[in-house]
């Protein structure tokens, strides 16, 4: 399990968005592992992440990420 602070924050926003236990989320977690994570819910997640990080995620990249770890990498790169 990583101690990376960016990942930790992403993990908590994902957990809040989908109402699940943060401990169940790893960098390898994909949308298919989380109940209710569809493209409409993904939009809520993006808004949640943008507000938590104070950053704007480019739309075309917001849907390219394959798992939670990649989402953290994307936020780190912005």
């Amino acid at each position: 399990m990583t101690e990376d602070p960016v990942f930790e924050r992403v993990r908590h926003v994902v957990a809040d968005t989908f109402g699940i236990d943060p401990a169940t989320i790893t960098p390898e977690t994909t949308a298919e592992d989380v109940d209710g994570w569809d493209s409409v819910a993904h939009a809520s997640l993006i808004v949640g992440l943008e507000s938590a990080f104070g950053k704007t995620i480019p739309m075309d990249r917001a849907y390219e990420v394959a798992n939670v770890g990649e989402m953290a990498n994307l936020l780190r790169s912005l």
């Binding site: 993904h42 739309m59 849907y63």
Partner: peptide, 8 residues
């Protein structure tokens, strides 16, 4: 449609 979902 894809842009709208993310940025309604």
């Amino acid at each position: 449609p894809f842009e709208w979902v993310t940025r309604p």
